[in-house]
Design a protein around this nucleic acid. Structure first.
Lengths: 371, 371
DNA sequence: TATGCGCAAGCATACGTATGCAGTCAGACA
DNA sequence: TGTCTGACTGCATACGTATGCTTGCGCATA
C-alpha cells in the first residue's frame, strides 16, 4: 500500500473550483477569507470526502513560517527538565506551534551539527535548556533572524534572550537558611562548573556566607551526574566524625536526593539531626515524604510561560531587543533542614506550596543577568 | 534585522556553477555524486562563505520524505516515559531523523486534531506512547502509508505495529513472588482501566493467583494519577488492622512509590514487615535506597530500539506487515518484598542490573499481542 | 443606460530543491 | 583522425501551496 497524497488540486477538481479557492478556504478564517460561503462548503465537502490535509511543508515554503520551534535539551533524567519539556510542548501546541525536539548528543562536537540540523528545518525559533551554544551557531541564528531563548542557562552572547531563576539570590537563601538553622560546618556540592546555574548559585551562596562571616567548610563537585555525586558526597564526609559538615547545599535536587541517599544508606547519617540538606529546583521528588527536601523553588511554569512569551514576541517582531527574564526564587522549607538553633529566633514558616498558575508577582526584568 | 535566506541559487552564482551542482553536492555522498571534485570544492567554499544551509522543507517537498517522525506522549511525570522519550530522540537523531514531539492535550477530543496536525507535517512515521488513537486517525495514517508504532500500549487495530513488555507474564511474576513470599491477603492497585498495560498486568496477576488457588483480597484503582493513587491506597487499608493486605501489587512504579509513601507516612506501615510491595517498570526511582522497590523490569532500551527498528523497516518498505514485538519481563527483587516464608525454599537472587546495551536475548516476536 | 464599486474566482507565479534529460568535453582506442 | 565511452554539467520541470493581479459579475447610483 503506497502513499496516495491528495492535494489541493485534487480537491479543487472534485469540488469544481480552482485551487486558489481551496487554499483560501484552508488558510484563512471564514470571515475575511475571500471565499463565498457556498464555495467554502463545496470545498470542505470535497476535502472531507477525499481525506485531504494541507501540506504544512509546502505552506511553510511559501509563507516562510514553519510554525515549528526547535527545542534542545541535554537530558531528561532530571525531572525538572522533563517537566519543563512537557510544559513547553503544551505551550507551543496551544499557540499552534510544534516542537522539533533534539537531545544533545554525548560528544560536544556534535552540538553544532545538531543545531545545524534544526536550522535546516526552518524553525521559527529555538529554545534551549541546559545547553550551551557555540558562538558560531548563535551568530548564524541571529543572521537568519531566528530568535533564541535559553532556559535556565545564561550565555555571554547578549543577543540571546534568556529566562532564569534568580540563581544568585537563590544561593543566598540557601546560605542564610543553613546559617540561621545553626549549621557551623557548611558544605557545598556543585554541579558542572561550566554551567551558569551552578556558578551563580554557588556565587550567591558564597556571598551570603561571607556577609555572615562564615567560611565554607567543604566543597566537592557532582557535575550534575549521579555517580559523581555519590563520590562527591562520600569524599565530603570522608573525615573524622567531629569534622563532618552539619549542613550541605547541593545545587540541584537531582543531585541532592542522591546525596541524601548516600548520607543515610552508606554513611549512616540522620537528616536533619546529623546534617541538614538544601537542594535547588523544588522538583516533585523534594516533596516525597521520605526525603522532605528543603529546596529553593524554581517557578517552572512561569519560566516556561516567560520563555514562550519572549520567543513569540521576537517571532512576531524580530527587531525587538532580546530580554533577560529573571524570576524570583523562594525557599520551600521541609524537614531536611533542621529548625533554627535555640539561640536564634525561629523564622515563620511560609506556605510551602504555591497555587498552580500563580504568576507574575515575583518576576522582574533586567538587561543583565547578574545585576 | 530581517531574514536574509541564502539559497542554492545564491551559492551557485557565487561559485560560478549551476544550481544543480549545488544540489548534488549537498544531497549525495562525495563518491557517486555526479560532481567533480573541483566543482564540489568550489561549491563548498561558496556555501561556507555565504553561510548556506539547505532548506530541509523544500527538499522534503520533492523527495516526499521529511525525515521527521511524529512522537506522541501523554505525559512525562512518569520517569519511565521521560526516559523513553530521551532514548527515542537519540535513536532518531542517530539515524538522521528528527522528532516532532507532541504532548497529548487534556481533552480527549483534541487528540484527533493533534494527530491531524502531526500528519500535516508529512512525518515519515509515528510513534505513540501511552496514547490511544481513534480508529479514524489510524485509518488515515494507513491510507497515507504512514507506519505507526505504539510503545507500551496495544490497540485493536492490527495494522499498527507495537512494542510492549510481556505484561501478562509480568503480572504473573508479581503474583508468584507475593505468594511465594508468604503473603496471604493480596491487594492490587490498578491504573487507568482503559489502558492495555494495566489490564494485561492485572490479567496475568489474577491468572497466576487463581492457578495457585489464592483469591484477590482487595482491589482499588489509581488511574495512573498520584492523587487518586493516594486515595486508592488509603481506601485499600481502611479496614481493621488484622484485615489489611500484607502484599500489594501496584501496576507501575510511578504509582507504587506514591503508595509506599502513603503506607509509611500516613498509615504508619513498615515495608516489607507489615506489607510487601511490588511495582512495574523498574524505573530509577525503584532503585533508590529509601524505596528499594521490587519491580517487574521493562527493558526500555530494547523497547525503544525495537520500536525504532520496526518503524524504519516499514518506512523503508511500506508493504511489510506490521509486527508486534513483545519483550520479556523480569522481576528485580529488592527489599520492598519480604523474603520467602520459612516453609518456602529461598529463591536465588538474580543480578539486579542488566548491562546497558544488553539486548536481543529475551525478545521474541509474535503476531498477536496476547498469546 | 452608463459608470463605478465591491466581491469572488481563477490564472499565473513563486517558494527552494531534486532530478531526468540532453548537451559538452576529455580521453581512450583502433 | 574518427568514434565511442564515460563523466560532468546545466536546463527545465516538478513538488504542493499562497497570493498578487486580472477578470467577471451583480448591484447601486446618477
Amino acid at each position: 500500500m503506497k502513499k496516495t497524497p491528495v492535494t489541493s488540486i485534487d480537491v479543487a477538481r472534485h469540488a469544481g473550483v480552482s485551487q486558489s479557492a481551496v487554499s483560501r478556504t484552508f488558510s484563512k478564517v471564514p470571515t475575511q477569507s475571500g471565499v463565498s460561503e457556498e464555495t467554502r462548503r463545496k470545498v470542505l465537502k470535497a476535502a472531507d470526502e477525499l481525506g485531504y490535509r494541507p501540506n504544512a511543508l509546502a505552506r511553510s515554503l511559501i509563507t516562510q513560517r514553519s510554525r515549528m520551534v526547535g527545542v534542545l535539551f541535554s537530558y531528561l533524567d532530571n525531572p525538572f527538565y522533563a517537566n519543563a519539556l512537557e510544559l513547553i510542548c503544551h505551550g507551543l501546541q496551544r499557540q499552534g506551534y510544534h516542537a522539533l525536539v533534539f537531545m544533545m548528543p554525548d560528544t560536544l562536537a556534535d552540538v553544532d551539527a545538531t543545531v545545524s540540523d534544526i536550522l535546516q528545518y526552518q524553525v521559527d525559533g529555538l529554545i534551549t535548556a541546559s545547553v550551551e551554544l557555540s558562538s558560531g551557531i548563535c551568530d548564524h541564528c541571529l543572521a537568519q533572524g531566528i530568535p533564541v531563548v535559553t532556559l535556565n542557562r545564561l550565555q555571554d552572547n547578549p543577543q540571546l534572550s534568556s529566562v532564569t531563576t534568580d540563581n544568585v539570590g537563590g544561593g543566598r537563601l540557601a546560605a542564610d537558611a543553613l546559617v540561621a538553622a545553626g549549621c557551623r560546618r557548611i558544605g557545598l556540592i556543585a554541579g558542572w562548573e561550566g554551567a551558569s546555574t551552578s556558578r551563580d548559585r554557588e556565587f550567591g551562596f558564597m556571598a551570603a556566607l561571607r556577609s555572615r562571616g562564615v567560611e565554607l567548610f567543604a566543597r566537592t563537585v557532582g557535575h550534575f551526574d549521579l555517580a559523581r555525586t555519590e563520590d562527591a558526597t562520600l569524599r565530603m564526609f570522608d573525615v573524622s566524625a567531629d569534622q563532618r559538615p552539619d549542613g550541605v547545599f547541593v545545587v540541584n535536587d537531582y543531585m541532592a536526593i542522591r546525596a541524601m541517599d548516600v548520607m543515610r544508606s552508606r554513611l549512616g547519617l540522620r537528616i536533619p539531626r546529623d546534617v541538614s540538606v538544601i537542594g535547588f529546583d523544588d522538583t516533585a521528588m523534594a516533596d516525597l515524604p521520605t526525603y522532605e527536601l528543603t529546596s529553593v523553588r524554581q517557578p517552572v511554569r512561569q519560566m516556561v510561560d516567560g520563555a514562550l512569551r519572549l520567543l513569540f514576541e521576537r517571532i512576531a517582531a524580530p527587531d525587538v531587543e532580546p530580554q533577560h527574564l529573571i524570576l524570583g526564587a523562594r525557599l520551600v522549607r521541609r524537614t531536611s533542614l533542621r529548625s533554627a538553633a535555640p539561640d536564634d529566633r525561629p523564622e515563620p514558616r511560609p506556605d510551602d506550596i504555591a497555587a498552580p498558575g500563580n504568576d507574575g508577582s515575583s518576576s522582574k526584568t533586567s538587561d543583565l543577568a547578574r545585576s
